[in-house]
Amino acid sequence: MGASEWDYYVPYQEDLDAALQQLRRRVFDAGDYFWVNGGGWRPEEGREPRPRTLEELCQDELVRDAGTHSILDVFQVLGPDDTPDCNTVEPVSAEEARELLGTDKLTRAHVKDFDVFPRSRWVGRCAVLHDEQGQPQEICFWGHSGD
């Protein structure tokens, strides 16, 4: 199947990890992810119902290998001194935004240029987006995951 790109926008809140956890819950509850055990590649009698909890989903061996091709494949937002690793989200720093896009107040207009930010498969990125007055308005999460 290959990896899938994904992106999500949520209202701004100071705690980026809390925003991620709320988003993950919303995506899980909506069933808006690839469910490998219920896929059309399996015969009808071999398909399994979707997990009842996010914890059940994350414990599934096929899900750990193939992913969900969604925000559910990342588990936490890193702090400024943390090293990006599989299943984490690395925030765009003010320095990185200034160096690569010329401003530390990113807006929706900058999103089309986010491919300049280094990224790896199974590691998400996030950035705070600002309004025209420079006030934080939303958070953009993006990445690519799945096999």
Results as ranks from 00 to 15, higher is better:
G67Q: 03
E48F: 00
R42W: 10
G39P: 00
E44W: 11
F28P: 13
P51F: 01
R26V: 12
A30L: 12
E45R: 09
V74S: 09
L78G: 00
T68C: 08
W41T: 10
V74E: 07
D32F: 01
L78P: 07
E55R: 06
E56N: 10
L57A: 10
E45F: 01
E55C: 02
G40Q: 11
D73V: 04
A30E: 14
E55K: 10
P49L: 02
A66D: 15
R50H: 05
N87S: 14
G67S: 04
E61F: 00
E55V: 14
L78V: 05
E48L: 13
T53Y: 04
F28C: 01
D29N: 11
A66V: 14
E45S: 11
R25G: 10
P43N: 02
F75K: 14
G38H: 02
D82E: 15
R52M: 06
D32M: 08
E61W: 05
F34N: 09
Q76R: 15
G40S: 12
E48G: 00
R26T: 15
E56I: 09
D85W: 13
P80H: 05
T88V: 08
R64E: 10
R47V: 06
G46W: 13
D85P: 09
V27R: 04
G39V: 02
D81S: 15
V63K: 04
T68S: 02
L72R: 02
D32Q: 07
E61L: 14
P84I: 08
N87E: 14
E44K: 09
R52D: 14
G46N: 12
P84V: 08
T88I: 09
D82M: 11
T53N: 04
R25M: 13
V74M: 05
E44R: 11
R50I: 02
V36H: 06
Q59T: 11
